[in-house]
Each structure stands twice: as C-alpha cells, then as structure tokens.
C-alpha cells in the first residue's frame, strides 16, 4: 500500500465544546489508484484528507506512507504527496504571478539550478495542465475559475508526486470545465502512475472516475465499494444517495 491510515481520530475545539470530526477512520490507497472519498458536507472527509498529508495532526491513530510511519512530515514526504484544494480562487497567493506560484515548489525544495531550468519545468507542466503561456504572467484575479484550477494542479504536480489528495477540485466549477479538468487528471495519472484520493460529494462523478470508493458519514468510514459495485447502483439510488450494502464490510 502506498498510503494508509489506521484508526485516526481528530477533534477540534469550537468555543467551549470539543467536536469530534474523525472517529477512528482507516483507509488505504494503492499505487496508481483513484480512490474516491464520498460523503455529505461536514462528514469529515476534508479533515481525513488533510490528516493523510499530515497538514492536520491526528489526536490518535497512525499514518503510513510506503510502510513507514509518518509522525512528523519530512521534506521527502512533502515532496511526494500533494494537495489540490477545493477553491481555486483561494489556493494561490493573490499577489504572485501564476508563474511564480507554479515555480514555488521547485524553489522551496531547491530543485531548479538555473532560471532557464526552472522556466522549462514550469512551461512543461503548464502545458500538460492546459495553460497557455500568456496565463503564466497574470495574477490570480485575472484568471477564470477553470484556468486557476489548472494552475493549482500544475503547481501540485510539478514535483511529480506519488500521491495527491484532490479535495473537491471541481465542485466550484462548471460541468464542462469539470469534465476537462477531470480528464486531464486522469491523463496525467495514466502517464505518471500517480495515485489520487479524490474527495467529492457528487456520486455521478465518483462513479465515473473511481477504482474504489469509501463512504464517510458522521466522522466514520461507513463503507467501501469496489468499481463493479458502484456500476451496479441504480440511477435512482445514486440521486437519493441510498447506498445498498454499504456497511456490510465494516
């Protein structure tokens, strides 16, 4: 298994109360897989994604990356795992040009020795992400949502990570843009073998892309469905979000 977590729990303090967001979740993602994490808003799926990336430290439970336990994120770990967040308008520093934002991971890890090398790397990934060169010189406020999300994806993929958490990357976008972005992510997966944990609340989308799907509800992982089981679901139950036999395996 490339990435897995065992029994992670997390609670946040809100005012005087503690809210348990994750109550002992275990999931695993294999190399080259697209695993969908499905659930209603507020079920804890975003937090679980962040725990896997060690952006949120779990209160209890363990996270493994390539069978080594991750307690504090190392530089090597940060290079191999990436995040594509939900809201592209918010994901880039509003004062930076798109080029600088895409090049930032290279700079942080000191991977490009010369300016030319950096430029080539940025241009190559931007092209894969479907951005034109003119986009690179603009500020985030001058791009549309779809173009921004492409920039965010380019930035996440420039380090050639092995595992990427896509946190509802298309929920703020139009359907035609969503289709283009999801296709692009799938193409890149075919070429590089990256694994995705794809967080979404859209069952139709999940059905279209998932190799496997975890269902979350109220801070727990309540079920796991294989691709074939997802296909068999009727359109009606998809719309109503009634998932048959969901909790059978757990």
């Amino acid at each position: 298994m490339l990435m897995r977590c065992v029994n992670v729990s997390k609670s946040f303090k809100v005012g005087r109360r503690r809210i348990e967001v994750l109550k002992g979740c275990s999931i695993a993602v294999d190399e080259g897989e697209t695993v969908v994490l499905f659930g209603e808003s507020g079920c804890g799926k975003t937090t679980l994604g962040r725990v896997l990336l060690m952006l949120v430290k779990p209160d209890a439970g363990r996270v493994f990356f390539k069978d080594t336990e991750i307690t504090a994120p190392t530089r090597e770990f940060r290079k191999s795992v990436q995040l594509i967040p939900q809201n592209p308008d918010e994901a880039l520093n509003p004062r930076w040009r798109i080029y600088d934002s895409i090049a930032e991971p290279l700079r942080v890890h000191g991977l490009a020795e010369t300016m030319n090398e950096e430029f080539d790397a940025v241009a190559a990934i931007a092209e894969k992400a479907g951005l034109k060169e003119e986009h690179l010189h603009r500020k985030p406020s001058e791009l549309s949502g779809g173009e921004l999300q492409r920039a965010v994806i380019a930035r996440a993929l420039i380090l050639e990570p092995e595992f990427v958490v896509c946190d509802e990357p298309t929920s703020m976008l139009d359907v035609s843009v969503q289709a283009a972005i999801v296709r692009m992510l799938m193409d890149i997966q075919k070429r590089t073998g990256v694994s995705y944990l794809f967080i979404t609340h859209d069952l139709e989308l999940a059905r279209a892309i998932a190799d496997r799907m975890y269902v979350m509800s109220g801070g727990r992982v309540t079920g796991e469905l294989r691709k074939e089981e997802l296909r068999e679901l009727s359109r009606e139950s998809l719309i109503r979000c009634e998932l048959p036999r969901v909790s059978a395996r757990f």
Partner: peptide, 17 residues
C-alpha cells in the same frame, strides 16, 4: 487561515518562509 497558506504548507514550505 486562508487556503493559499495551507497550500504553501502542503508543498513543504517552512514556517518563516
């Protein structure tokens, strides 16, 4: 709390940076 700060953390940037 803005998301771009989270994203900078995700690519491995340090606190002072």
């Amino acid at each position: 709390e803005r998301e771009f700060v989270l994203c900078a953390k995700a690519i491995g940037a340090g606190e002072w940076y």
